Amino acid sequence: MEETGEEISQGPKGGWPPDRGRQALITDFLKPQVREKEGESLPEHPMNEPFSAEQDVAEEGLPKIIVPQDAYEERLQGFRFSLIGRGNFKFISMDDIRKEARETWNLKGGVKMAPMGKGYILFKFEKEGDMAALWRRSLTRVAGHVLRFQRWKPDFDVHAKNINIKLVWIRFPDFPLEYWHEKILLTMAKAAGRPIALDRCTRATSMGSFARVQVEIEMGASRPEEIQVERRQPGMGEIF
């Protein structure tokens, strides 16, 4: 552009030259674009609701807002088959993890990965079976370094002191065969942690010496060595 040395003229109140006209403001783009026709009302949407300066105030003095429960539950559905992984990004990268997933995880569907900070990664699987297979492994190795998994949960905060979770196998030795039922075994396993699955031999009742159940426990938490099992007397309801 050639400089002429001429000063650009401004409007009588300063600002942009008169030929520029009114400039769009950011608030213009935040306004609802749906126009209300005569005799019709705008669809329900938070942007269409009138602003009110009066708001509920929490005990801490902060404004209190109640989010739409249906929208929250709809969003939760997207994380049904999600895991949280944690690795050391000093030694591995997201590209390393994606390569490992393609080459060795044997996934039946896709998986989306998103770094969350503090070494945490969100894994959103398309297939429940893929999620379950990785979760049961508890950890895997990427470029020679450990990537540890835990189940995603609502309100997960990377800055909070998160409890480390691991999967372990527990045994019920000398187990009576009439108790070899998946529902019974998973119920009993709650005494040690969160029950996940039975092993193949236990499901098939192919080993009569012990039953084995996989459970999710907190690292460092104590485990009971014995539990007391009770059931109800048929026809009487008495526990014995």
Results as ranks from 00 to 15, higher is better:
residue 1 M to C: 03
residue 7 E to C: 12
residue 8 I to D: 13
residue 8 I to Q: 13
residue 11 G to W: 03
residue 12 P to A: 12
residue 14 G to P: 08
residue 14 G to C: 06
residue 17 P to Q: 10
residue 17 P to I: 04
residue 17 P to N: 09
residue 18 P to S: 11
residue 22 R to Q: 12
residue 25 L to R: 15
residue 27 T to Y: 14
residue 31 K to C: 13
residue 31 K to M: 13
residue 33 Q to I: 11
residue 34 V to R: 15
residue 39 G to S: 07
residue 41 S to N: 15
residue 43 P to K: 07
residue 44 E to L: 08
residue 56 D to P: 10
residue 61 G to M: 00
residue 68 P to M: 09
residue 78 G to V: 05
residue 80 R to P: 00
residue 83 L to Y: 02
residue 94 M to Q: 14
residue 97 I to W: 02
residue 97 I to H: 01
residue 98 R to N: 12
residue 99 K to L: 15
residue 100 E to T: 11
residue 107 L to D: 02
residue 112 K to D: 01
residue 112 K to F: 00
residue 115 P to V: 03
residue 116 M to L: 14
residue 121 I to M: 07
residue 122 L to Q: 04
residue 123 F to D: 01
residue 125 F to P: 01
residue 130 D to M: 04
residue 138 S to I: 05
residue 139 L to Y: 09
residue 140 T to W: 05
residue 144 G to Q: 03
residue 147 L to W: 01
residue 152 W to D: 00
residue 156 F to S: 04
residue 156 F to H: 03
residue 161 K to N: 13
residue 166 K to T: 07
residue 167 L to W: 00
residue 168 V to Q: 07
residue 168 V to G: 02
residue 170 I to C: 01
residue 178 E to L: 10
residue 179 Y to F: 14
residue 179 Y to D: 04
residue 183 K to E: 11
residue 192 A to N: 02
residue 194 R to I: 09
residue 197 A to M: 07
residue 199 D to Y: 08
residue 204 A to W: 09
residue 205 T to N: 15
residue 206 S to H: 09
residue 210 F to G: 05
residue 218 E to F: 07
residue 221 A to L: 08
residue 221 A to I: 10
residue 227 I to C: 07
residue 231 R to G: 13
residue 232 R to P: 04
residue 237 G to Q: 06
residue 239 I to Q: 10
residue 240 F to E: 15
